[in-house]
Design a protein around this nucleic acid. Structure first.
Lengths: 338, 338
DNA sequence: GTGAAAGCGCTAACAG
DNA sequence: CTGTTAGCGCTTTCAC
């Protein structure tokens, strides 16, 4: 591995001069600069970021931890985060916790020990508290995405989950549906709780009875227990006419199971969900959704993070951005009349 | 920031002893070990990976560079890579080049200067040569994914692009289609070239004439020039009855443009593509595709990379894995009779 | 303009 | 079993 000393030797200068050329600091004669640059090229020199970070105590690297890399909500969010990071000349690294606390914990070790300058994180849920607490203890600036964690005060970008769920239920009502079930993510996730609340409130406002048997708690990620979901579907008596899924991944799981038992959508079973499907919705516009502004989550979150880093020592109050969801009506709901 | 010296001082031992406790090396009395561990916890010590990497000259971090984080092919591939990396206890970092040589180059700087142990990379195309060449020059083990780059000899996982394209055209033929157009990614990408070849060969085998006007070169990524695609669609006279897209992203773009002008799919225009849509295909199974084994790309690629790192100094011949694509017939193609 | 010395946090090699 | 020394590649400080 070529070091600045190799360059220095070959160029007949000191390592310090090479360092100055690399970083464009101090005063260097044009002649020396040219000579050093030439040697650097000849030797294919690449600065050792590791060594540099060690002495500088900063990396200019930011980390984005998402909970499901195959979910278009998060990948679109990632694009937003990338764009914002690039604009401020930060490098961005990604991690994928897969909605797993354990993997999140692994990434936290990586994050902490690699001394990145800041973190954008969609936490796995309330039990992520110790992870975030440790970021705070170690003085690593971070911004939360999509989910609040009780006890953690920080900058955050949120979707209006309650309103999103409510608008979906209202729409189903307007289409004549009265028996509406909900499948949701873990109640340890703030957005799941709010979505359930939105559902309950909408039922109440429309004078419908809330029945626990029509609500099932699974996982927002890829590790839902399918057998349990099937069992739930079997247990509802009578079957609901419409099902609302707490996110896009759950909607797909349910559809798959429904199809497996020969049901057609929407003819036999209407379905809606929160979160859109990114580009894939345009393929064959199918699912009626409360679409969240995924890109904005990433972009605004990253902006907040960078500001926070730059104003590190200034006491700026925590910011909270809540983005509304948009109801997009497609064809997964059958209008019915009683 | 807490260092091993802080621990050492408080525990009344030397830094070296602390280091040994952390790494579980050498012989330490249980008593000392317990004492050191206790102090470590009290002080919330986190090892400085940066410093450690500097002396160890290895990071135990692998890097996965994909070209489109919103493309389910790559996200599914990422899951495979993650799983394989985890199995061998490597950490994995992600980068997204967005099919852009410039961004790829940025990531290469990150990769090189952060001294990761190995790289799994889907190159932007043939012009990625210098990037890969520089990995080679710097002795960083890497495995290519999905695309070959002329002049680069290395381990690689490939899809059988030619056969995939051919099977799609054959299927269209079997459904009575004779005027088949193709929209493709850049010809500087090996897989795009092979897909075009597959298309051409299938036409030839079926005694159909290859007409350049029916072929359009756009981009596999999100930066296709939509105006040009529209112009191409306008220019075909007569319109093809079916269009084959070189990948999933292009298929969506074309569908969007087609819908914009009021055409229905498949009634007015049949369409097929290479690459499936991950979980989103199950939502409303629509597109007929030649599905590639995305997960396997990542998993097998990562395995090869890790083996290569472990056998760093042994001369093992380069491996090349070619994964077949699977034709999945759904409903984006209208059977026609002439 | 340029260089020498010291140190960022850690571990390998050796000594005891 | 534990400690001392040196050095990974770089930059800051201070000298000249």
């Amino acid at each position: 591995m070529v070091t600045i000393y190799d360059i220095a030797e070959k160029a007949n200068v000191s390592a310090m001069t090479v360092s100055r050329v690399i970083n464009n600091t101090g005063k260097i004669s044009d002649k020396t600069r040219a000579k050093v640059k030439k040697v650097m090229e000849e030797l294919h020199y690449v600065p050792n970021h590791t060594a540099r970070s060690l002495v500088l105590q900063q990396t200019r690297v930011l980390f984005l931890l998402i909970t499901d890399i195959t979910n278009p909500f998060y990948t679109t969010l990632s694009r937003g985060a990338e764009d914002a990071a690039k604009k401020s000349d930060y490098r961005l690294l990604f991690g994928n916790s897969d909605e797993s606390l354990e993997k999140e914990s692994d990434y936290l070790t990586t994050i902490l020990s690699s001394r990145v300058d800041g973190v954008l994180i969609a936490p796995a849920g309330d039990p992520s508290f110790p992870h975030l607490d440790s970021l705070r203890k170690h003085n690593v600036p971070f911004v939360l995405l999509d989910r609040e964690v009780p006890g953690i005060e920080c900058d955050i970008v949120l979707g209006d989950s309650k309103e999103g769920a409510r608008s979906l239920v209202d729409y189903l009502m307007s289409q004549g549906h009265r028996r509406i079930a909900m499948i949701n993510g873990s109640s340890s996730i703030s957005s799941a709780r709010l979505r359930l609340q939105g559902y309950q409130e909408a039922l109440k406002l429309n004078d419908l009875i809330y029945d626990e048997a029509y609500v099932h708690e699974a996982s927002f990620g890829p590790q839902s227990d399918l057998a349990q979901i099937e069992q739930w579907l079997d247990s509802m008596e009578p079957m609901p006419t419409a099902i609302m899924a707490g996110n896009n991944v759950l909607a797909i799981e349910v559809i798959r199971l429904l199809r497996k038992r020969g049901l057609r959508i929407p003819e036999d079973q209407s379905i809606v969900c929160i979160d859109d499907f990114g580009p894939y919705s345009e393929m064959d516009p199918f699912m009626t959704v409360a679409a969240q502004q995924a890109y904005q989550f990433g972009y605004l979150g990253m902006q907040m993070l960078i500001e926070r880093i730059q104003e590190r020592n200034i006491a700026v109050p925590w910011k909270k951005i809540v983005l509304p969801a948009e109801l997009i009506i497609r064809r997964s709901v059958l209008p019915i009349s009683e």
